[in-house]
């Protein structure tokens, strides 16, 4: 289970989905007024790969996530959270992800990370004179490694991210 926050969190999720490479699930709460735009996803992955589950509140989001993680049908389950996770629900998601061998990615509001997360990222887009895909990904928590900051850009032709050196930037 991984967490991502910051203004570029959605982009991070979309790029993860591009790497997942098959049908995946995106769980959101129904009150959110932002709408996922499948036409915009075309540069990253075929929009027919996306299944969206709309749940009424955070409890339902977590229940849906747990069930789909455990089943192991999807390679990736993205959930948008609006509040912090408590220890129990974090642990349950962790166990479910392990049982189903599925990656869970939670998009969290700033400063609401949980202990269960394997890694936590903070992402923001960065302005660049020559390119419009540059982003800064900061790894701010890592249970099994070191932290770091990367500048990455998205290569549309290969559908891969490219890590850019600090010097060039």
């Amino acid at each position: 289970m991984h967490e991502v926050g910051g203004p570029g969190a959605q982009s991070f999720a979309v790029i993860c989905a591009a790497h997942a490479g098959s049908v995946f699930l995106w769980i959101r709460e129904s009150w959110r007024s932002e709408q996922l735009n499948p036409v915009g996803f075309m540069d990253f992955f075929p929009p027919e790969n996306l299944l969206v589950a709309t749940a009424g509140n955070q409890i339902e989001v977590l229940a849906t996530a747990e069930e789909s993680l455990r089943s192991g049908v999807f390679p990736l389950v993205i959930m948008e959270l609006s509040g912090p996770l408590d220890l129990t629900s974090g642990r349950r998601l962790q166990l479910a992800a392990k049982a189903g061998k599925t990656t869970a990615l939670a998009i969290i509001p700033d400063g609401m990370g949980s202990n269960a997360a394997e890694t936590r990222w903070w992402c923001a887009p960065v302005f660049d004179q020559n390119d419009s895909t540059l982003q800064r990904w900061k790894l701010i928590k890592n249970k099994s490694g070191t932290l770091g900051v990367w500048n990455v850009r998205w290569s549309q032709s290969t559908r891969r991210i490219a890590v850019v050196s600090e010097a060039r930037f």
Binding site: S30, L36, V52, A53, T54, T64, S71, V73
Partner: peptide
């Protein structure tokens, strides 16, 4: 397996709430 999962999720959040996009 995918369809069974959609059914199971549907019993909780309503089967119409699991959606896909069509052009």
């Amino acid at each position: 397996k995918l369809e069974d999962l959609v059914t199971r999720l549907g019993t909780r959040i309503g089967i119409e709430n699991i959606q896909r996009f069509l052009p």
